[in-house]
């Protein structure tokens, strides 16, 4: 009986978690525009999706902004984390606190302040302003995921590499970098999802005519959402699912390599 209740509970949770997604997926195959009744199975929204240049443009904007902002934020954030790691304890703690503020700050405040900043510098709103905004809010996530890796890093391994004849650049890339790589990677992935996810900050820093998926969907809310968006959301969901499975699978590979090393003994 107890066992049954446990299973039942689990099922309920999964239903709550996934019911919305399932609804969305079902409606992406619905042959009518109505959100209330089933009009038969169709692929036409998927077909239409790839012919709707404005949606495709928004998708491209979303992906390129996510990719570029994550890459640049990862670079800046990693360098910042490295610099902070070599600082004295007090200045390190202060800087770490300053880094945390933008993350705890309400997004709407970040969005509005960035907007004001761009206006102040008379910078034209558009693709570049969104990109800059995304880089800005992404940097703390990178610092936050790289810093702990650096903290647990044996400070002697960099010196050991120098000791064995490597110059500082080589020493960094051959021994420090591989050790903090997981932190850098997870920082990058976090940035990427944050950027794709973002609506509020993008909304305040975008110019007319430039849209990302989130702002595009928001614009459609009033006149009714185009079912092509359901199709797109379904595709994104499936992509994320596949990525997640892949990401969870990678550490196993490392473990296998280790096991192999041990067996080779």
């Amino acid at each position: 009986m107890m066992k049954f209740i446990k299973k039942f509970y689990l099922v309920i949770i999964f239903i709550f978690l996934y019911a919305p997604m399932v609804t969305l997926i079902v409606f992406s195959f619905n042959n009518t525009k109505s959100r209330a009744k089933w009009g038969g199975f169709t692929f036409k929204w998927y077909a239409g999706l790839f012919n709707d240049s404005s949606i495709i443009q928004a998708l491209i904007n979303t992906l390129t902004i996510a990719l570029l902002s994550s890459l640049i934020a990862t670079l800046i954030g990693t360098i910042a984390a490295l610099a902070m790691n070599n600082m004295k304890k007090l200045s390190k703690n202060i800087l770490m606190g300053v880094t945390n503020i933008p993350m705890l700050n309400a997004e709407i405040v970040t969005g509005i302040s960035l907007m004001l900043l761009f206006i102040f510098f008379k910078y034209r709103f558009g693709y570049v302003t969104i990109l800059l905004a995304h880089i800005t809010f992404n940097i703390p996530y990178v610092i936050l995921s790289v810093a702990p890796r650096l903290k647990t890093l044996n400070p002697n391994i960099y010196e050991a590499a120098l000791d064995l004849g490597a110059n500082p650049l080589k020493a960094f890339f051959k021994v420090v970098f591989p050790d903090i790589m997981p932190g850098i990677l997870s920082g990058f992935l976090m940035c990427f999802t944050m950027s794709i996810d973002d609506f509020i900050i993008t909304h305040f820093t975008k110019g007319a005519g430039v849209d990302t998926l989130s702002t595009k969907i928001y614009a459609q809310v009033k006149k009714g959402i185009d079912p092509k968006m359901y199709a797109l959301s379904t595709l994104i969901f499936v992509t994320v699912l596949v990525l997640l499975i892949l990401v969870n699978y990678t550490p196993n590979k490392e473990k296998q390599r280790r096991l192999k090393g041990e067996k080779a003994k």
Partner: peptide, 10 residues
């Protein structure tokens, strides 16, 4: 060459 206190193997 140095042998460090905490080994410092890669």
């Amino acid at each position: 060459n140095t042998v460090f206190q905490k080994y410092a193997l890669f």
